[in-house]
């Protein structure tokens, strides 16, 4: 443990209004602390620069999965383990369950939360591509009130997002679809468990007589934010899948993403694998 523990402060508000009051009084001073699976790693390495934290563990209305006729609503503190074990999510939102199952270790899955995964804002996070494909919305609360935002567009740049310093992310809403969509998820992390993605791909499409009616594609680890590949989507929508279309769309995707070289992989590898995953997804749709 390289951190100097006495320098850190953790407050544990007993309910939401207490938590929001602290954030409202000193916006930006208190950083929310949920499962801690990202923050504790930084703390151990002596690299956690923020010093004051607000624990969300006692916020009961941040927990639980609610299924309504139109949507499934996940409390922000829903853990990866709760997600992967939820029967409703398994049947209607399998990509999210797969992402949860492939995130970190069992211990991480027991503690890590979906809300934390979103606001930690890592471009390599595994759940956000699935959330983007499912057209998720996020609920933000503060003393000023409650607002819902589409998750697409929530992240505006590396570690930047549309959340004010006095707001907390309370819930994630996944709209239920009447008709079945074909779905695809693949995390590429070199080892089968406890991996950080080199490329993560989620896709869903609605097919009608061999024509792509609806399509959503999202990728992680290939840009400063988890990215919805809207231009690639546009080139496919309304078309029949052919080898020529696949080649053209791979090219479009190549210009839409901006992978980098880092200690985990290379830009060239990420680019090529992202294109290959797109092709694999499209070929599955054509089948």
């Amino acid at each position: 443990m390289r951190a100097y523990i006495p320098a850190y402060d953790l407050r544990v508000p007993g309910n939401l209004s207490e938590a929001l009051a602290i954030l409202g009084r000193e916006p930006g001073v208190w950083q929310p602390f949920a499962g801690g699976t990202d923050l504790m790693v930084l703390l151990e390495a002596g690299k956690l620069s923020h010093r004051k934290f607000l624990s969300l563990t006692k916020l009961a209305d941040f927990r639980g999965v609610e299924v309504t006729s139109g949507a499934v609503i996940l409390g922000a503190l829903t853990t990866y383990m709760e997600i992967q074990r939820h029967p409703g999510l398994q049947s209607e939102f399998p990509l999210l369950c797969t992402a949860a199952r492939e995130t970190g270790s069992i211990a991480t899955q027991n503690r890590g939360t979906i809300g934390g995964n979103i606001v930690n804002a890592s471009p390599a996070a595994d759940s956000p591509p699935a959330l983007l494909v499912y057209d998720a919305e996020v609920e933000l609360v503060s003393e000023r009130g409650v607002r819902w935002l589409p998750y697409h567009g929530f992240h505006t740049g590396y570690k930047k997002m549309q959340i004010a310093a006095d707001e907390l992310l309370r819930a994630i809403r996944l709209p239920r679809r009447a008709e079945p969509w074909k779905q695809y998820y693949r995390k590429v992390g070199t080892r089968k468990a406890q991996a950080i993605s080199k490329v993560c791909f989620a896709g869903a499409a609605q097919m009608e007589d061999g024509i792509v009616r609806g399509i959503r594609i999202a990728l992680g680890s290939v840009a400063p934010i988890v990215l919805r590949a809207v231009r690639a989507e546009a080139s496919i929508r309304g078309k029949k899948i052919t080898p020529e279309l696949i080649a053209a769309t791979k090219d479009i995707l190549g210009h839409e993403i901006a992978p980098i070289d880092d200690i985990r992989s290379t830009a060239r590898y990420r680019l090529r694998v992202a294109q290959n995953l797109l092709a694999e997804f499209l070929m599955q749709l054509a089948r």
């Binding site: 790693v41 070199t190 080892r191 089968k192 468990a193 406890q194 991996a195 950080i196 200690i263 985990r264």
Partner: peptide, 9 residues
Amino acid sequence: TNYIMPTAA
């Protein structure tokens, strides 16, 4: 996390 030792899987 970044030095990829294989897991049992």
